[in-house]
């Protein structure tokens, strides 16, 4: 089955955020969470999908049982956890969906279609491009620190937080400026500064899945407003 397009993802983000403004009956909360988990299944991320369905189930059940909690500190704790935190669940699920089903090229294409300017798109693409590098760099730096016997354990890191931060930051930032220079050279020699309209290899077609998702989503939105 074809996965949902980036525009549907944008729609889901809006839907989840709108849901924050309404108070939902339990059944609607359950339906909304299930609905938002759907893209995970559509992209065959069954394990992740099931995990989030389970989490949703716990919160929904927890929320349904508000009347059962005792009237003491723990009761309030549970109450706050389930009804307060549970409220944010749709937004969290959407975030999971965004991060596990969206490709950077698709996101860039989507943003371009929304006429987001180049001065946002270039830094945004660089940002995604740079994340894995930061992770790699951090590991290398920690290993290098081990050889010098510097802040080897977590405890010694907490004991001298500023010293440790300095040790990690210096090579990290040094590398960052090197990467920035190299990336700029690579991007410029590949014509990034062309002022004309950019095209995109990524093709986003609106399919049955998208229409279905939007229709169900709008339906849920209707229930939200009238419930």
């Amino acid at each position: 089955m074809k996965q949902a397009s980036i525009f549907t993802t944008f729609f889901l983000i809006i839907l989840a955020n709108v849901s924050l403004f309404f108070s939902m009956p339990v059944w609607l909360q359950a339906a909304l969470c299930c609905f938002l988990c759907a893209p995970l299944f559509l992209t065959r991320k069954y394990k992740k999908g099931l995990k989030w369905l389970l989490i949703s189930a716990i919160f929904v059940v927890g929320n349904a049982c508000v009347l059962l909690y005792p009237d003491n500190f723990w009761g309030h704790y549970l109450l706050f956890l389930f009804s307060g935190f549970g409220k944010l669940l749709p937004v969290v699920i959407v975030a999971v969906v965004v991060f596990s089903t969206t490709r950077v090229s698709e996101l860039v294409y989507g943003l371009r279609c929304l006429h987001v300017p180049q001065w946002i798109i270039i830094p945004l693409s660089v940002l995604f491009r740079f994340f894995p590098t930061i992770r790699y760099d951090y590991r290398q730096i920690r290993e290098a620190m081990k050889f010098r016997g510097l802040a080897v354990s977590g405890a010694s890191m907490l004991l001298h937080p500023f010293r440790s931060m300095e040790l990690i930051y210096v090579p990290l930032l040094n590398n960052a400026s090197n990467v920035a220079a190299d990336l700029t050279a690579a991007a410029l020699t590949r014509g990034i500064s062309d002022p004309g309209t950019k095209s995109s290899l990524t093709e986003v077609s609106i399919g049955v899945v998208d229409i279905g998702m939007v229709v169900v989503g709008l339906g849920l939105l209707g229930c939200l407003v009238y419930a």
């Binding site: 950077v104 491009r129 990336l183 690579a186 062309d194 950019k198 095209s199 995109s200 290899l201």
Partner: peptide
């Protein structure tokens, strides 16, 4: 440096990148 001269995150996008910048059609 092979590690720092790619601008996108996957091979196909990296190859498409120069053409996309010039607005070549899909």
């Amino acid at each position: 440096n092979p590690k720092t001269q790619f601008f996108t995150t996957d091979v196909t996008s990296e190859l498409a990148f120069p053409l996309e910048n010039l607005g070549v059609d899909r």
